[in-house]
C-alpha cells in the first residue's frame, strides 16, 4: 500500500510531471511564471485546490454518481464542484491571506479553467484510484505543477536578458524553453524505485 502511494507520488512529481509530460495546466504555467513570487503563490493555491478537488470529487463520484448510475454526468459534476471550490478558496484567501489574494489577482478564478485540476480528477476516475490514492495523486500532482512553474519562473527571469530573434518575443521563446525543460525531465522516464 505504502509503495503504491509512493510510486504514485514519484510518478506525479517527476516521471509523469503534469506539465512536462502530460501538458495539463499549460495556460497558467505560461501566464503566471514571470516572477518567482507569483509562481510560488500560484503553485501553493493549485496544490490546495487539486488535493481538495480530488478528495471531494472522489466522494461525489463514489457515493452519488456511481450509486445512481449517472456515470455520464461526471464531467459536468466535476467542473461544477471545482468552480464552487475555487469560489470558496477565493473567499477564504481574501479574508485570511489578503496579500496572497491580491498577488494572485485574476489568476485565482482562472484555476477553475486550469486543465490540471479537471485533468487530475478525470485521471483519478480513469485509473480507478481509491480515496487515499486519489487525494495523494491530487496533492503530488499539484506539487509537480509547482515544481515546474517555479523552475520555469527562474528560467524566465534569465530570459529577460537574453538575445533572441524578435519574432520569438512573448510565448514562442517561453515555449521553446519549456520544451528544453521537458527534455530534461525526460531523463526521469522509466524510473522505478518503488
Amino acid at each position: 500500500m505504502l509503495t503504491n502511494i509512493l510510486s504514485i507520488s514519484l510518478g506525479a512529481i517527476l516521471i509523469n510531471n503534469f506539465i512536462f509530460s502530460q501538458f495539463l495546466g499549460c495556460c497558467p504555467f505560461l501566464g503566471c511564471s514571470n516572477k518567482m513570487d507569483t509562481a510560488v503563490g500560484m503553485g501553493i493555491a493549485v496544490i490546495f485546490v487539486m488535493g481538495l478537488a480530488s478528495a471531494i470529487c472522489w466522494v461525489v463520484n463514489e457515493y452519488i454518481l456511481m450509486k445512481l448510475g449517472l456515470g455520464f454526468m461526471q464531467t459536468l459534476t466535476y467542473i461544477l464542484v471545482i468552480a464552487v471550490l475555487v469560489q470558496f478558496v477565493e473567499m477564504f484567501l481574501k479574508k485570511s491571506v489578503p496579500s496572497l489574494y491580491s498577488a494572485l489577482g485574476i489568476y485565482l478564478p482562472l484555476i477553475t479553467t486550469n486543465c490540471a485540476v479537471l485533468g487530475v480528477v478525470l485521471l483519478n476516475t480513469q485509473n480507478n484510484y481509491n480515496f487515499l490514492e486519489s487525494t495523494v495523486y491530487g496533492i503530488t500532482g499539484g506539487m509537480g505543477f509547482m515544481l515546474a512553474i517555479c523552475l520555469f519562473a527562474s528560467v524566465r527571469e534569465k530570459l529577460e536578458f537574453a538575445d533572441y530573434p524578435k519574432c520569438f518575443e512573448g510565448f514562442p521563446i517561453c515555449l521553446v524553453s519549456a520544451g528544453l525543460l521537458s527534455l530534461a525531465f525526460m531523463g526521469f522516464s522509466g524510473m522505478k524505485i518503488f
Binding site: F20, S21, F23, I173, L175, V176, G179, L180, S182, L183
Partner: peptide
C-alpha cells in the same frame, strides 16, 4: 512532449 512545445513555439 518536447517536440510539442518546440513546434508550437
Amino acid at each position: 512532449p518536447v517536440g510539442g512545445f518546440m513546434c508550437l513555439g
